[in-house]
Amino acid sequence: MKSLKSRNGLLCLAGLVLALLIPQIIDNNFYIDVLTLVLFSAFLGQSWNILGGYAGQFSFGGVVFFGTGAYASSILFRSFGIDPWIGIFGAIAAGAAMGAFIGFISFRYGLKGSYFALITLAFAEFFRIIANSVEFTGGGVGIFIDYNPSLTQLQFDNPAGYYYLALLMTVISLLIAWWLERSRFGASLVAIRENEEAAEALGVNAFRCKMYAICIAGAMGGAAGTFYTQKFLYLDPPIAYGIGTSVEMLLVTIVGGLGTIFGPLVGAFVLHSINEVARHYLEAPGLSMIVYGLILIGIVGFLPNGLIGLFRRRQKKMAGGDDA
């Protein structure tokens, strides 16, 4: 078992080195861009995974943190001249505050399961309408972000810059998940996911743990928001609070593997690959999303532990595990 562990550690290190070298190996901006999007999705997915995968609180409005962070750093820059490399911390704080707000309202009143999913959806819709109607978000017109490549703007003149930023964020998100898997707090979250009443009976403060989880998810979503605006240079209410991103977050996680460290990354890689292939060979709108939907149904129906689960089962067999 120990050798398996050190082998996994080595595998992670090799993966990281490979990831660092990719812009040197692949001299094709298109692929670097796709990989950047994969990492970005994986990061967002991990934000959803912490709340949905580890703590078992499925949200249908995970985008609300992303949108809040995106608006926070954009408005900080536009109205107060604060550069995005500082602004991203404002975005993280705003995302965490949004997490605390939604978490307090939802968990304080004991909403769980489908009800929690629905209330997060309602919050995303609520803030979409607000962002669409007030002045300081730029309303329906949205916010255009100036392009001034420099590190303080978190903007780069070559795709590799964005790639490395996304890689850094993804590595941090993986470390957070890794920490969750071996900390007492993470164990409490899993206990809450499996049986909240039992966890409480054993002395886990479920409300507090869920609050921490949603704040961490919110902080990560906020950071993702800043990354998005600095890369794509435009933000409007449907981007910030649309259901599409919420669905993507849960999709990559569930496809890859709920409550696993690498689930969101694996899911993001597979789904984006499918998307690119579908876009390349079939010039038809909607088709790749049809495939996404079918994959989601298939995974829920036949592979409840996601692609990672498939891999794990094999690994266990190789290690001679008996509880496969």
């Binding site: 399961g113 849960l250 909607g286 088709l287 996404y292 939907g293 149904i297 129906g301 409840p304």
Partner: peptide, 26 residues
């Protein structure tokens, strides 16, 4: 497909919604 689990049904019907919506676009 949902194996009777609450969240699974939510996800299966969500997947169904995605498929129908995009099939409609197609």
């Amino acid at each position: 497909l949902a194996h009777g689990k609450d969240e699974n049904i939510l996800l299966v019907t969500l997947g169904l919604a995605i498929v129908i919506e995009n099939a409609a676009i197609f």
